[in-house]
Design a protein around this nucleic acid. Structure first.
Lengths: 183, 183
DNA sequence: TACGGCATGTAAATTGTTACATGATTGA
DNA sequence: TCAATCATGTAACAATTTACATGCCGTA
């Protein structure tokens, strides 16, 4: 049940409406924890009745009203509690791995195509992270404490994408004889 | 809905009871797709009514009867279909990343402890994979086609664990000044 | 006038987790 | 006798995804 905590972190950084949160989840935090707006609205409701957040309707002109959520002291306490407890071990969950394992029983050519697509999307994601890093953390050796978490998470994303690319390359070497040096 | 396919792959490799499958999911395939026995029994029932598998009760002596599931032609066709369709892009889902992001609002010392624990479990998992690799694929340059999928999946696991370790090291360097060279 | 962005939700279906339930055999 | 392993499940709950629903504003 980490969505609550992801939302708490996001609200601790800056108050926001459900809609804003949904967009943040598309952009930054969501690279590590996806959530749809439907889910966010539902969880926000529960969090409000738990006293972790409070909302206030803000009228806007030329736009629909928005319900801005603010983290409460209770919410901040919950965040401290969350960080102080050990994270349960996370396990990978990769449909792609299942597919690789299905290699002898399936369509090898299609799988190879899929690996190429996957490699490209890892590359794109890595480029995106590198871009974010350059934009938001121009001096990696001198990052203030309040921004360190964001940087470290970005680094985790970059390392994961690099590993993904390396994996795809190994697979292609085995399955496609590495006959493609495109671009 | 990849559990069905993970089970199909497992049954294509060798017929098994629900209990056997649950143990395989603990050991090999399950490193990339966890499933509890409860879930497996439920899905097996659905798969049988879909005609992907067939079951036969096998009496045993000194042990409870077992219901052995065998993949059908329909199941094999489904596997081919599965491999021929592009895998939807997978996104990471990391509670640990959420926690890192919570760094300025939480208990930094506890988070550092958690990173150390996490690093150790990555190392253990990597050692386990390396061991499996040495045991089942003693000649990595000469792997028969039918075993290639398993090898590639193992390699993916190893690369992911290495990336995880590298990430933990970066985090510790930033947060703990790298003052620990334990062992 | 049609589309995209802003803004908030409900409902249904699927998937996954946790707890409960049973009963035999084997080894410490 | 207690715990572990073998073996199969049901029930309740939580989490997630997909589909549906509404309505205003600005722009092409």
């Amino acid at each position: 049940m980490a969505l609550e905590h992801a939302i708490l972190v996001s609200l601790a950084e800056r108050s926001a409406s459900g809609y804003d949160l949904a967009r943040r989840f598309d952009a930054s935090i969501g690279h590590f924890w996806k959530a749809s707006h439907q889910q966010i609205y539902k969880v926000l409701g529960r969090m409000e009745s738990d006293g972790w957040v409070e909302s206030q309707v803000v009228p806007q002109d030329g736009r629909p009203d928005k319900k801005v959520y603010v983290i409460t002291d209770g919410g901040r306490a919950e965040l401290v509690l969350f960080t102080s407890k050990a994270t349960p071990p996370e396990h990978l969950r990769s449909e792609f791995a299942v597919k690789l394992r299905a290699l002898p029983f399936g369509d090898a050519a299609a799988i190879v195509d899929d690996v190429r697509v996957r490699r490209r999307s890892h590359e794109q994601q890595l480029a995106y992270y590198a871009d974010s890093a350059a934009r938001f953390y121009p001096h990696p050796d001198d990052i203030p404490d309040h921004a360190l978490g964001g940087w470290l998470v970005l680094r985790g994303g970059m390392l994961a994408e690099q590993a993904g690319i390396a994996w795809c390359d190994e697979i292609l070497q085995r399955l496609a004889g590495d006959e493609d040096d495109e671009r």
